[in-house]
Design a protein around this nucleic acid. Sequence first.
DNA 1: CAGCCATCCTGGGGGC
DNA 2: TGCCCCCAGGATGGCT
Length: 322
Amino acid sequence: MPELPEVEVVRRGLASWVAGRTIEAVDVVDARSVRRHPLGPEDFRGQLEGALVLDAVRRGKYLWLPLSDPDVPEARVHDPGAGPHTALLAHLGMSGQLLVEEPEAPDEKHLKVRLTLSDTLGMPRELRFVDQRIFGGLAVVPLVPTHDSGPGGRGDSDLPLIPGEAAHIGRDPLDPLFDPEAFHLRLRARRTGIKRALLDQRLVSGIGNIYADEALWGARLHYARPTDTLRRPETERLVHAVRDVMGRALVAGGTSFDSLYVNVNGASGYFSRSLDAYGRAGRACRRCAAAGEGGVIVRERFMNRSSYRCTRCQPVPRNARW
DNA sequence: CAGCCATCCTGGGGGC
DNA sequence: TGCCCCCAGGATGGCT
């Protein structure tokens, strides 16, 4: 399942392969993948055809391509303060892929949307949205200046332009603007369990079920640990563990062990070999084994999902909040 | 407002 | 071999 490292790998691929090209044609193969575009597939196509892709931007697991507005060329071009006003917004959901392919490549089984891009340097390409489970989708949305938890007192022109759909998404742990001390204080103010908090994209973004379990294992914390009892060293351990697991995944190009997810050019990653908790039910905890101890990874149902933890180094806490 | 849960969705896989 | 059911989980809307 794409989490922050996978989405960031896709973003980088889009920035290098798609930015600078024009969208020449749009084929919505399955309208369900644009159901979050309020005006329907025809409007989706009309708004994209002829648009120039300027960049590829990410906030948490939301990804968007800022577009030049082809309908108002003159006025905008001569206004130095005018940035892009719309973007192609994408969320990969559980199984979404954005693939940059040669037009001759055969259609994928779950191809949902095909964007034909302008030919650059004799390299014609299509951007294809492929999605089996249809939790993800595409939409053309306005970009609006949006405050976040950063320093205030600035004018509108200095605020980041992001889609309203992503306005509530917090900074991710690898973002320079992520504030570990503020994160700690917000955790302490919550009345819930730590895994619920990690999965709340408003508090910290980019973490899904897999990296949540990996980070909790790294920090030796149980998923039901009450957030209001966390001590500063524990939060620091957790932030360090999240950054470590995400950083390693990013270097490896995303986990993509699901085989549904591959990166923007269709190549699989291989980070799954180094997962310590997720998917290892019944196997020995590596850390315990290295210390000559007998901790075992168990799978438990939590939040209608699977959670993996070590019985020994992630014991059930007092006052657990399930 | 904060917390939390059901729901969306498809296809692979196990059981029989 | 075919059928049924479970399972995967990100984000949202609507409860309490």
